[in-house]
Simulated assay, not measured.
Amino acid sequence: MPSEKSAAIVIRVIDWSESSNVVTLFTRDFGKITALAKGGRRPKGPFESALDLLAGCRIVFLHKSTEALDLLTEAKLMRRFRGAEQGLAPLYAGYYLAELLRELTEEGDPHPELFDASEEIIQVLSSTKAPVARLVLQFEIIALRLLGHLPRLTHCVETGVPVTASGTVAFGILSGGVLSPEVAQQRSRVTRVRNSSLKIIEQFAQDVNAWKTITLDSQSLGELRNLFNQYIQHLLGKKPRMHDHLRLLSQQ
């Protein structure tokens, strides 16, 4: 059984036995994997502190062809997540990023562009005075685009006709995008969104570094936070555990 190597981000760690962990890793080359880390709980074990949540590491693992867990044989720490040193908002934002990577991705489905974006955002969250609210929004939108879940923003998601109303437009949470007035009247879970907020989503979707230049007023941030909270909850079929903590982002 040949060994595989990749850069990885730790997105979950579960105690397996007195000495071992089961870890979920989002890797650059193999996507999400779940592996047994024998000796991972030992203070001076083979992985040292490389398996802390959101740590960046270089791993070597044995891929099992069956449904059995992969076997992690090496993990070299390359970067720690230091969000806790910057405050609760960066810490919770990092935990939310890990949760979305776990819930939105599939085992063995690589997305190197998403890995690179995640790695950069984690590093910025570890730095001083990170723009946490914009970083979270950037991650959500880029992840949705790369994974094929980005809402349709300019044409009715059901009829394909352009939606050109001024002011606000109807957005169907269940439909996955904007709706024409006629369709919106017949659908449930419809919310109103300002055109200016939809344009912000487009900008973030087109440029992974949009968070560096785009500023958000409190109204736009609140509207977008509410929209994505609802939409992501619908996609997952459940409320993300970290959603209640995202209220801290309104203070950013």
Rank of each mutant, 00 (worst) to 15 (best):
E107F: 15
C156W: 06
S250I: 14
Q230C: 12
D116M: 12
P90M: 03
L174C: 06
G177R: 10
E158F: 15
M242K: 02
R80P: 00
G31L: 02
V178C: 10
A75N: 02
F30I: 07
S49H: 08
T105L: 12
R189E: 08
Y95V: 02
L101Y: 01
R247S: 14
F47S: 00
Q186R: 14
H245T: 10
E107G: 03
I214P: 04
H149I: 14
L246A: 07
V22Q: 02
P131E: 01
Q230F: 14
G160W: 12
A35N: 00
I142Q: 09
P112Y: 05
L146S: 07
A133K: 05
V23G: 05
G45R: 05
R42M: 10
N21C: 04
S118L: 06
V157S: 05
L91H: 07
E106M: 12
A165F: 07
A75L: 03
Q203V: 04
R187V: 13
L71Q: 05
Q203M: 12
E182S: 13
K238P: 05
T164F: 11
M242G: 00
R79N: 00
T159F: 13
E182P: 07
I201L: 04
G31D: 01
D217S: 09
S118M: 06
T27Q: 01
F47K: 03
A210H: 03
G94Q: 02
K32G: 02
H63M: 12
S3Y: 15
G237W: 14
S196K: 12
R41W: 07
Y95I: 05
A35G: 02
A8F: 04
L51P: 03
R194Y: 12
P90A: 01
L249C: 06
I142F: 08
D15H: 10
E48G: 00
G31P: 03
S166Q: 14
T168G: 00
I201V: 15
R247V: 15
A68C: 07
I201Q: 01
L198F: 07
S166P: 05
G94T: 02
A68N: 11
R134W: 14
L104W: 09
A130W: 14
H111P: 00
N229P: 04
D109W: 13
I232C: 06
A184H: 12
G172I: 11
R12W: 13
R225W: 13
Y231K: 08
L36I: 15
S127Y: 03
T154N: 11
E106S: 15
Q123P: 00
L101M: 09
P131V: 11
G222W: 12
V161H: 11
V193Q: 01
V183N: 06
L216Q: 08
I59A: 01
R194C: 03
S126M: 02
F204V: 10
A75T: 00
G40S: 03
R80N: 01
T128W: 06
F139H: 10
S6N: 05
L88P: 01
S19A: 14
E119A: 05
G94W: 04
H234D: 00
Q230L: 15
E48H: 00
K76M: 02
K129D: 08
F204N: 03
Q219Y: 09
V124N: 04
L25S: 01
V132I: 13
I121N: 01
R12T: 06
G222Q: 09
I201W: 07
W16V: 03
Y96D: 02
L146H: 08
N21Q: 04
A7D: 06
P112E: 05
E4D: 07
L69P: 12
L69E: 06
